[in-house]
């Protein structure tokens, strides 16, 4: 029998295994959960992963104050409740929170604008970690800056906790539209693109060559219905995060399952129609123009 050793010649935390987990989540739904019971409901509904946090964005928005990393005991409770990957959020720039989450063995850290930023100039050096990171972005330059800092998955920020898809659509269209333009640019124009985007030239050239980000690109912030999931997947998202949209709705379990189905069969309107029937009320939505705080403006 052939034999390999997992000791000396094996490497953890490589770019390939970090980005690879994001690849495995493609076509799936990652759900925000605040208790082990909700985590079970999410897993039962077919979530590919859960995001463990103390308050969903809608509540953070309502309560105000400083939003921080969750209590480790709460994260561990959720890790014990499910077998699917568990993610958790650290504040922008708060590498100590990220270190704590890594020591708990969370599967992905979200350096998230939903929490109150801890550093006004610096994001976390994500290359320094074994655990992979996902970061939000509103445009291509922001996405490439996060990737240059070591992010292994990008999610469009949208406007979390609003149940309003309009910002997520704006961010997706901005990122993917600029990618399409870059693929048409010549070498001299790429220098200018790098300057305009404030992004490393090497990454800009790579995107021009491949026509996509070097890491998977998911969508977050405002998804509340199966139709929302279908919309963002058709626009080019590779998977969706649903925050407040499930557990702030009238009947979370069937809505969770319906959003999973719609994310898989996003090109099949008859399927999306079928799963959209009789789900009860979606979460109450918020008009973007009336918000006091725009979470998407956090980070740069």
């Amino acid at each position: 029998m052939a034999d390999s050793k997992s000791g000396s010649d094996s490497k953890v935390g490589t770019v390939r295994v970090k980005r690879g987990l994001a690849d495995m989540l493609r076509g799936g739904v990652i759900m925000d959960v605040v208790t082990p019971v909700e985590a079970k409901i999410a897993e039962d509904a077919g979530a590919v992963a859960v995001m463990a946090l103390e308050r969903v964005p809608a509540d953070i928005r309502r309560d105000g104050g400083v939003a921080r990393m969750s209590d480790p005991a709460m994260v561990e409770g959720i890790q014990e409740a499910v077998t699917i990957p568990v993610m958790a959020k650290a504040r922008i720039g708060h590498f100590a929170e990220a270190q704590i989450l890594e020591s708990l063995g969370v599967d992905y850290v979200d350096e998230s604008e939903v929490l109150t930023p801890a550093d006004e100039a610096h994001h976390i050096d994500k290359w320094a970690f074994t655990v992979p990171f996902v970061c939000g972005a509103t445009n291509l330059g922001e996405a490439l800056r996060r990737i240059s800092e070591g992010a292994c998955m990008i999610r469009s920020k949208g406007e979390a906790g609003t149940g309003n898809i309009v910002e997520a659509v704006r961010h997706l269209r901005s990122i993917l539209g600029d990618i399409r333009k870059i693929t048409q640019a010549d070498q001299a124009e790429l220098f200018d693109w790098a300057k305009q985007l404030q992004a490393p030239l090497g990454l800009v050239q790579e995107v021009a060559e491949t026509g996509c980000l070097p890491v998977p690109m998911f969508c977050a912030g405002g998804i509340a219905t199966p139709a929302d999931a279908s919309l963002v997947m058709q626009l080019g998202a590779e998977a969706v995060f649903v925050g407040s949209g499930i557990f702030k709705s009238e009947d979370p379990a069937p809505r969770a399952k319906a959003i999973v189905e719609a994310t898989t069969h996003f090109r099949d309107p008859a399927m999306v129609a079928k799963v959209s029937r009789g789900l009860g009320d979606a979460m109450p939505g918020l008009e973007i123009g009336e918000l006091e705080t725009k979470l998407a403006e956090r980070g740069w």
Partner: peptide
């Protein structure tokens, strides 16, 4: 978990 994910020949 993911932090133990690895590459090996």
């Amino acid at each position: 978990r993911q932090v133990a994910s690895f590459e090996t020949d």
